[in-house]
């Protein structure tokens, strides 16, 4: 039984990680709190719902969701954010606008009601753990979370693109001085953030339903995770996802009404003790070479 709760916690953690990793990465390279990611999330949610509803099967539907999120993000970056380069305030307001537009557009097209996800195949199956049924989908979620963490960490560590991205996160100016063109890196990372948000949306549907304000509803948790983990740090995001996911599952099991409260409490505690987040660095360092 406790195994069941722990597995639930891990699956939540995996979801939170996928949800927040994109936001964290985008902040790292652009310095922008990307509200629009809640919009890509909703787009991915509905894309997967559409795919599953048309009998596409789980893999194509989820890939479709990630692609929709990524393409939307790329369009937004190139057309709206790029001209605002260097204007962080303007970029935040713009991503907020994009989020409002995407949420409302979905609301307009599909209506405000909660749609049920088509739960067939893998989505409907359960396995027995300690005499209790456990949804296969949640196991899948854990696997996807682990996979994405490994892919991100390895790509950042061992590929040339990953090295350039990390250099750009460290200091855009120094990266340019080393001959790295930062603008396309930003587009790539931003699109990747959109893909992760879209995928997170697809993963959200099967256990919470499909509705337009889902993006805003999860934004709170995303923010909690990145505040706790430290913006721009992938391992920090992972650690925070684990803490928040497990705490939520454990507390939710014993005292269901306190599940969300405990998340906020964890956040406040971390802020009091370590304002820079679990794995973030203390403040004071900024891009000293910038113009």
């Amino acid at each position: 039984m406790i195994l069941n709760v722990l597995l639930s916690g891990l699956s939540l953690a995996a979801f939170y990680f996928i949800l927040s990793a994109g936001l964290s990465l985008v902040f790292g390279i652009m310095g922008v709190l990307n509200f629009a990611s809640a919009g890509y999330f909703v787009a991915g949610l509905y894309a997967a719902w559409f795919g599953l509803g048309h009998g596409w099967g789980i893999l194509p539907a989820f890939i479709f969701a990630a692609v929709v999120g990524g393409v939307l993000a790329l369009l937004v970056e190139v057309s709206l954010l790029r001209p605002l380069y260097g204007n962080v305030g303007g970029q935040i307001l713009t991503t907020l606008g994009v989020m409002l537009i995407l949420d409302e557009a979905v609301n307009w097209v599909f209506g405000p009601q909660i749609q049920q996800e088509q739960m067939t195949g893998l989505l409907s199956q359960t396995v027995m753990f300690g005499g209790m049924p456990f949804p296969v989908f949640r196991l899948l979620l854990i696997a996807v979370g682990v996979l994405i963490f490994l892919l991100l960490a390895l790509a950042l560590r061992y590929t040339g693109l990953g090295l350039r991205v990390r250099a750009g996160v460290d200091s855009q100016t120094l990266a340019e001085l080393a001959g790295v063109r930062v603008a396309p890196l930003r587009s790539i990372v931003y699109a990747l953030g959109g893909m992760l948000a879209g995928l997170a949306g697809a993963l959200y549907g099967p256990f919470s339903g499909v509705y337009p304000s889902a993006g805003l509803d999860t934004l709170l948790l995303t923010f909690i995770v990145v505040v706790v983990g430290g913006l721009g740090s992938i391992p920090g995001t992972l650690a925070a996802s684990l803490v928040i996911g497990l705490a939520e599952a454990l507390v939710g099991f014993f005292v269901p009404s306190l599940a969300l409260t405990v998340n906020v409490l964890v956040m406040i505690l971390v802020l009091l003790l370590r304002p820079q987040g679990l794995l973030g660095k203390p403040p004071g360092r900024r891009d000293t070479h910038a113009a």
């Binding site: 990465l25 902040f27 790292g28 310095g31 305030g89 430290g230 721009g232 740090s233 973030g280």
Partner: peptide, 13 residues
């Protein structure tokens, strides 16, 4: 911009 937004941040890895 002018307000000091020096936020704590960590390396990506």
């Amino acid at each position: 911009e002018s307000s000091d937004q020096s936020a704590p941040r960590g390396g990506l890895l």
